[in-house]
Design a protein around this nucleic acid. Structure first.
Lengths: 161, 161
DNA sequence: TCTATTTGGTTGCTTTTGTGACAATCTTTT
DNA sequence: AAAAGATTGTCACAAAAGCAACCAAATAGA
């Protein structure tokens, strides 16, 4: 038991969890986004919108944002750009004329199918690389984080980005 | 055993690891960045620069970027802004006049000390919230990821953001 | 029913990031 | 040494993200 009076707890950036998490996320995202960027020239909001619609079929812009954690302006722009590409079309809701139901066109669905497969392969490959143990730890750690901020989520920061 | 021919492996966005990782990182970062943004009006590149200099003392811009995973333009701008704030000063290197050695002023060091403490507390609190198990899993998962992309890092994507 | 409030979505503006080119300086090669 | 190549840091421009105001339509309240 040393008489070790620490004047300053040193902060080691590379050990600091928020930093590590960010770096990991960027690192992985960069790799995966190559898949949809190089091939299709999609941005991340566009990819997320595509993924959400592919997963659920028709959805409103708000629902997309909710599900994919994007601010509504991001969704709005992504929808516009996917529409221009003719991967998505808008269907008006007769009951509530503020909203539109968005759905993928056959071309959009085709791209989705391809990208969903790439995503799946990417993840499989990642887990192989991490090893059974590493993959399990990562998933468990993420689950713990998600449980934590699900509890914490204030009504003021519900879904947005 | 059903004759369930899956035409399409469905992609569940909220289960997709890159998405989860991003969301987790943003979620945590948002919380922590509040600490340095509200109080000091720092951006993340500025915080990382401060943290690196606080950790190591004088360093060049390149070394900062290397250590904190930031592109050199980010470092350049962060350095400029910290200098304007008089938290950092540049010292020329007589041996190599391309570089400058950057170090914190007393004011910068003071802010660093405070922020380092906040960071430390933040992490401690986080681990408490995650529980012993969750914290351990998260750290192990991050370590596995880091080991993976350390192996993978091509000479073309060394340090940059 | 008429007004006030909320909700869904878009647009414009500002700030932040990403990219490529550049000037200056060092290093290597011939 | 001179030429070619690398490295350091900055700048200008383009793309993306964040913010707040806004319109239109629905809902709630008096």
């Amino acid at each position: 038991m040393t008489n070790n009076t620490l004047e300053r707890a040193p902060l080691i950036l590379e050990d600091f969890t928020p930093y590590r998490l960010n770096k990991a996320a960027e690192s992985i995202s960069r790799r995966f986004s190559g898949q949809y960027r190089e091939r299709y020239g999609l941005t991340r909001p566009e990819w997320r919108t595509l993924a959400t619609l592919g997963q659920f079929g028709a959805r409103t812009a708000t629902a997309i944002g909710m599900h994919s954690s994007m601010h509504k302006t991001k969704v709005s722009r992504a929808v516009f750009s996917l529409e221009k590409r003719r991967w998505l079309r808008r269907c008006r809701d007769e009951a509530d004329r503020r909203t539109e139901h968005l759905e993928l066109t056959p071309a959009g669905l085709k791209a989705y199918d391809h990208l969903a497969k790439l995503a799946h392969d990417f993840e499989t490959e990642l887990f192989v690389r991490l090893g059974e143990r590493g993959a399990r730890d990562l998933k468990a750690g993420l689950a713990a984080l998600e449980a934590y901020y699900r509890r914490q989520s204030t009504p003021s920061s519900p879904d947005d980005d």
